[in-house]
Nucleic acid binder design. Sequence first.
RNA 1: GGGCGAUUAGCUCAGUUGGUAGAGCAUUCGAUUGACGUUCGAAAUGUCAGAGGUUCGAGUCCUCUAUCGCCCACCA
Length: 772
Amino acid sequence: MTNENNADPRKDTTTGQVAAGDDKKARIYPESKLVHEKFLKPFNAQETEARIYKLWEDSGYFNPDNLPARHQTPYTIVLPPPNVTGILHMGHAVAITLEDIMIRYHRMQGFKTLWLPGTDHAAIATQSKVEKDISKKEGKTRYDLGREEMLKRIGEFVQGSHDTIIKQAKTFGASCDWSREAFTLDDKRNFAVRTAFKAMYDDGLIYRGHRIVNWDPKGQTTISDDEIVYVEEKTKFYYFKYGPFVIGTSRPETKFGDKCVVMHPDDKRYSAYKHGQEIELEWINGPIKAVVIKDEAIDMAFGTGVMTITPWHSMEDFEIARRHNLDKEQIIDKYGKLMPVAGEFAGMKITEARQKIVDKLQAKGLVEKVEDYVHNVATAERTGGMIEPQIMNQWFVAVNKPFIIKHSQINGIPAGSTITLKDLMSKVVLNNQIEIIPDYFGKTYFHWIEKLNDWCISRQIWYGHRVPVWYRNINGQEEVYNGLEAPIGEGWTQDEDTLDTWFSSALWTFSTLGWPEAFDSTTGLPKPGTDLALFHPTQVLETGYDILFFWVARMILMSGYHLGTIPFSKIYLHGTVRDNQGRKFSKTLNNGVDPMEVSAKFGTDAGRMGIVIGNTPGIDFKFSEDKIRAQAKFANKIWNASRFVLSNLDDFDFSSTPELTEEDQKSMDELNTFIVDITKDMDEYRFYMASDKIYNYFWHDFADIIIERSKTTIFGQDDKAKKSVQYMTWTILTTLLKVIHPFMPFVTEEIWSLLPLTNRKLLMIEEWPKQK
RNA sequence: GGGCGAUUAGCUCAGUUGGUAGAGCAUUCGAUUGACGUUCGAAAUGUCAGAGGUUCGAGUCCUCUAUCGCCCACCA
């Protein structure tokens, strides 16, 4: 990382920062009135940033309500709420930078900009993090502590994470309206969740089903299909003699309850066996009776073309059993141990039982052969636990069930029409009401929707929104009640489960803007004058492509259903930030980079610019210190060029408009062309390109050519030409400071504050340069 | 198995509707006591993964192939 060729001992080769206490520069421009003494040293980001951020915060302009009158048209972004599981990493820094660029640009363009911040309680992720910490430090489980104490501990942890996150975001220059900050688990959001749940329950779109779900024995909770991560596993594939058949399996431990042997109806090898025929055979714990089932789901080419089924613990088997109305028996309990049906193996963990079962079958002469086998096993994203499908009572969102939409402003979906949630999700992207950047992610999106099954939303953890359903049992008759509040009467108990964290984040674009209070259910429109009416739908949703399904799609679902609108008109997807070798940042590799360190070392402006240039939407971005270091130099270049321009304006009349020389006029025309070009890039969300052009134009056109050339005139005798060049350099400098500001807000605002301006405003609310 | 993306200078990547190949970092040579301790000028390095096609013209559009990466999927 260090530059070994650099022999200058005064220079810190790691950061490029100049050692303090050297006043050499103080002698160069003692006579220039306009050059503030701060300019006598290189730009000092560390001294500047906190002070400038305070200036912005104190101005109140982060809050759209305080912006000057010219700001009328709303422009809204909701910050993807970071999980309160830890501190922000460079991926968050990219998001914050891009969103801040969008917000600052539009604020300068005169929009009424709202960037609404918040944090996400991240249910499972947070609870399992705190559980791990407690287990490590105190050797206790959540059951030792109990629900109340556990939630208290999580609350304390969350407060700490939250404060760090906010501090980090501010350090990175985020111009969020902190007065509107929200949390996915605060009271207002909880009310929004209960309201949303009830509406969908009443419409039959949320239902309780006794269905097969993804059970995580480690986390002791269900998870949704999207929270599964497939991990390649090398294991054995066993062939067992099963009466007259040979069956293949990778999971001998599930085979106790298998009383059905299934084959394809067209499989000629087994045409002698008829559907429904009973066969007596010797099995693990003695003789059993098995029924022959013919089903087209069987792949004749795989294994022997015959399999037994375990409907309780396999999605596919469950479906086969459902089709033929077969018994379903539980073999494995929720702790991953064998049930009494396993006989002598009961109570054993499946991992240890497997080999013992195979040994027994071997002893009975029932093992045909064993092969090596590589397959993908389902694990839980957060805990890493091996998913064990189980049949359970859980809550689901029905995505394929037709319902009548009450209110709709969505193109092609009139109010009162019958649709499904799936239709809702695909239509708005299909008809371009929502634009995805880059557009090819639309294909991925549709692909996902096509395969989408009902969304399991209940979780058996404690941290989260409690399922707003109450039960009571009177004379063996179960009553179920769903409402905004607990029912009146004796004997009701609330559902123990909590909701998937994405259920509350799916409401984020409108739960943060005053929904449901701000929504008029009679007209189907937001009540006039409310945040909801003003700022929703939002303009852009900027996030990583990795949560397109988890979050983005579900926001579209919820906004469409509850408000009859799109939640945002653009989706900007940034890539994953990787290290300079292209590896993901991870705790095990210990290659993480803390944005705070980047700011401390190179300055926030450099950090922001270095992660924006060349960061194409949808494409993974490699982080490198070299890129940041180059931009730290750029910040100083802006600083020095500003000093030079200022130092030659002592005798300039700022209220004058001198006649320009042909050459200076040409520079002004080129500036205009540049502004036109950049503005187009900004409007079309090509920040990776705009930033690169800005860097090049400032350094290699303005500094290297225009300023260099101006020196002859500045130090020459032609007074008219000098006035012209002074005007031209001053105009280009002030124009460029505005253009750079969204990208590098601190250094530009600091310079702006040192300029001899009349009618001084903060640069952050100056007008974006007009193109001629 | 299905889908998506990438492949451009030594490294990291831009290249917007097709019009003479670009930047940063690294390298080499030179300059630099009137903005720049973080400066300037110049140089070198590319059959734009490969093959075919469309076109007056292709890094860019189409087809196929290769390699790498990612996402999705209940093959027991």
